[in-house]
Write a protein that binds this DNA or RNA. Structure first.
Length: 714
DNA sequence: GCGATCAGGT
DNA sequence: CACACCTGATCGC
């Protein structure tokens, strides 16, 4: 008999689980161009996703289809709640902005913790400068064009583009420029200070050029550029103009008859690009047209937005990358892109903003920020070897030194090919000095090699060592100056961690007055009060023993690249059975510094074992499990799989260790977590008692920061 | 051809 | 929901 899983652990009823999806719909309805822009800044592919730990986000489901939990009767009732109109009333901006990537968040971030802004001198300033440009654009209009604030004209063709949004204006002018280039006509300056170009509309009337009346709408032209001219008719028939175009959604495309997936995706993507171009807001100045004329005469191919960089680059003399960033890139342009694209940039060439949780305030240090590689930093810390933390790190890394634990060092060397001369191994529980900052690492109790890092201002000893001669003294003076301006305060970066009692006993953590705690808030919600790992391991052992009455049973235990080792090692040890692992998995296990007596429980011979360690996603779907079952027909008649994850607790899950069965396949979801539970998070915060908390995961909705912090401190 | 990146998935 | 990571498409060298 299988044990009754629900008897072991308690259940915490949850509140509405569909709040997040409802908020997503709310975001969808935000109409302020600035806000929309910023959400695209965070996630160019969608304007409707919630904000989370910076990682790729999923497409939003249509209303009523939020439940992605097949077969889950328990949560379907909650998840299928239709968003109501009440949720569509836009709240204040701040309510929607947990994303540290967005420009608007920087505004609020400023209010939350203004001193931390100082570190973002290089690229971070870029983001706020974009906002500045928007604001300045308004100022400029106020100052010089008060009387004609309602009329904005294309600098090229002189058409009234007041009705268009900024991005569409840009597209319009780009199109004009393309025509200039395409037709090789020498542009002439018109009365409005802009340029005339063939086929454009001035003041709503067709402009005659070369004796020919323009008959191609911008939408049609746009379609042609996408190679989708076959849909011209549809767009014309449906009367989709530039303005309507920006609001088009995939469903709309379906409804107007564009049912083929390829073209539809292409259009959706291009629309995303269109909206994205709004980010590259431009300033239209009188000298622009002059510049265009000059360049056109010279026969150079340039983007319209190239002419709009002036004020930006002037203001950002300190930034090497500013000019490159300010070059706007159209979706169909490649020449400009080639020159500026690099690490930490999206496909559209836009550099991704470094999230707050990746930067150590008062230093140029970055933690788990390989997605945001920059030249202004040469100290890159990696807390552990999980993809979402090392993403962006490649063997061609050339941005300085990588600091990590010895286990992580072995893994990045073996799996990614990072040469050893670019890795500095950090010792555990031992203070070392890196670029004038004291750094101490502790075991994070997450996966093997995971560390918590404490950054502290240099202590007195360093100073006395430095002041050996006058030159050093001057250096120290400069350093003091830097310190005083950037206010280095102790910062503790938790990475991903699971708080345990051993951690509370660490003297440096008790002694240090941590100012800023960058906290792994994955399960920062009272509903996640899952049990200790030991009791879950015991549950699995009991379950294996209970199901093992059938000798033809195959046990599967899910694991990640690294992580969950304790679970299957304990099972093997207790049951005195070998567990099968694949050769690549064994190579990884060999890097983890496990004890020899533990290593002997692994076998590469699957015939030797009926307990197999498999990737989590194998266990995630019954389809895969069935496929596996078919391969073992004859040898095994029953598959019992264990999916160890903290998510199996809470959020409408009525019990832990849930047992799912489909025919001869049984799957247990067990709350074996390598992140801290809510209770543990609270204990940890109490222990550290920081002045400031920065969450590294934002998965609880827009208000999460303040609510998380208040819950933790409650 | 290959590595890197992205979108979409479990 | 999304821990962490896969697959396939695309881009750039």
């Amino acid at each position: 008999m299988a044990p009754n899983p629900s008897s072991n652990f308690n259940i915490i009823p949850t509140s509405s689980s569909s709040t997040l999806s409802q908020l997503q719909h709310t975001q969808l309805k935000l109409t302020s161009p600035v806000i929309d822009d910023d959400f695209q800044d965070y996630n160019p592919s969608s304007i409707s996703t919630s904000t989370k730990k910076p990682k790729r986000s999923k497409p939003t489901n249509p209303p009523g289809k939020e439940n992605i939990f097949p077969g889950s009767d328990l949560c379907s009732g909650l998840d299928s709640i239709e968003p109501t109109l009440d949720f569509l009333n836009p709240k204040s901006k701040q309510d929607y902005l947990p994303s540290y990537n967005s420009i608007e968040s920087k505004l609020v971030k400023h209010h939350i913790n203004s001193e931390e802004e100082e570190q973002f001198c290089g690229e971070e300033e870029e983001g706020s400068t974009q906002l500045d440009v928007l604001l300045k654009l308004c100022d400029d209009v106020d100052e010089s064009e008060v009387e004609r604030i309602d009329s904005i004209y294309c600098p090229l063709c002189g058409a009234d583009i007041s009705e268009l949004t900024d991005d569409l204006r840009q597209i319009h002018t780009n199109n004009c420029l393309d025509k200039l280039e395409g037709s090789s006509n020498v542009a002439s300056v018109n009365d409005a200070g802009g340029l005339q170009c063939p086929g454009q509309i001035v003041d709503g009337s067709p402009l005659k050029s070369n004796g020919k009346v323009a008959d191609v709408s911008p939408v049609v032209e746009w379609l042609r550029k996408l190679g989708l001219s076959k849909y011209e008719e549809v767009f014309v028939k449906e009367e989709i103009d530039w303005d309507a175009l920006q609001w088009l959604k995939e469903e709309d495309l379906c409804s107007i008859g564009i049912t083929a997936l390829g073209p539809r995706k292409k259009i959706v993507h291009a629309l995303g690009e269109l909206r994205n171009d709004l980010c590259r807001t431009v300033e239209i100045k009188e000298d622009v047209s002059k510049g265009v004329a000059d360049e056109t005469k010279l026969g150079k191919t340039k983007l319209i937005t190239d002419y709009f960089q002036g004020p930006l680059s002037e203001r950002k003399k300190g930034s090497i990358t500013s000019t490159a960033q300010n070059i706007a890139r159209r979706s169909h342009t490649d020449s400009a892109q080639k020159s500026v694209q690099g690490k930490g940039r999206g496909r559209n060439g836009k550099q991704k903003d470094v999230p707050l949780w990746c930067s150590i305030p008062g230093t140029t240090f970055r933690v788990d920020a390989f997605k945001y590689l920059r030249r202004d930093c040469s100290h890159w810390f990696l807390t552990h070897f999980h993809l979402d933390h090392y993403q962006g790190l490649t063997r061609s890394f050339c941005h300085g030194m990588i600091y990590c634990s010895s286990i992580t060092a072995k893994l990045i060397n073996m799996k990614i090919g990072i040469p050893w001369d670019k890795i500095q191994v950090l010792p555990l529980n031992q203070k070392i000095n890196i670029a004038g900052i004291d750094v101490t690492c502790f075991d994070a109790n997450h996966c093997p090699g995971a560390i918590i890092i404490l950054f502290e201002p240099p202590n007195g000893k360093v100073w006395t060592k430095l002041i050996k001669n006058l030159y050093s003294f001057l250096l120290v003076l400069v350093f003091i100056k830097l310190c005083s301006s950037s206010c280095i305060q102790p910062v503790l970066h938790s990475g991903d961690f699971r708080f345990g009692e051993e951690m509370a006993k660490l003297p440096p953590l008790q002694a240090c007055r941590v100012h800023t705690l960058i906290l792994d808030t994955t399960y920062c919600d009272p509903q996640y009060d899952f049990p200790k790992q030991d009791s879950v391991i015991q549950f699995v052992i009991d379950a294996v023993q209970a199901e093992a009455f059938n000798p033809k049973t195959l046990f599967l235990i899910g694991s990640y690249t690294i992580g969950k080792e304790r679970l299957f090692i304990e099972v093997a040890r207790t049951l005195r059975k070998k567990v099968y692992v694949t050769a690549p998995k064994l190579r990884i296990l060999e890097c983890l510094g496990l004890q020899q007596e533990d290593m002997r429980w692994f076998t590469l011979n699957e015939q030797e074992s009926h307990i197999h360690v498999v990737p989590m996603w194998t266990i995630a779907s019954f389809k895969r499990l069935k496929h596996m079952s078919n391969q073992y027909t004859g040898r095994f008649s029953l598959i019992v799989a264990f999916s160890p994850t903290g998510w199996s607790f809470g959020k409408g899950k009525k019990s832990t260790g849930r047992r799912w069965q489909q025919g001869t396949i049984i799957r247990y979801e067990v709350p074996y977590s390598e992140h801290s539970s809510f209770t543990e998070l609270r204990e940890f915060v109490k222990l550290i008692s920081p002045a400031n908390i920065i969450p590294s995961v934002n998965n609880h909705g827009p208000d999460s920061h303040s609510s998380m912090v208040s819950q933790l401190l409650a």
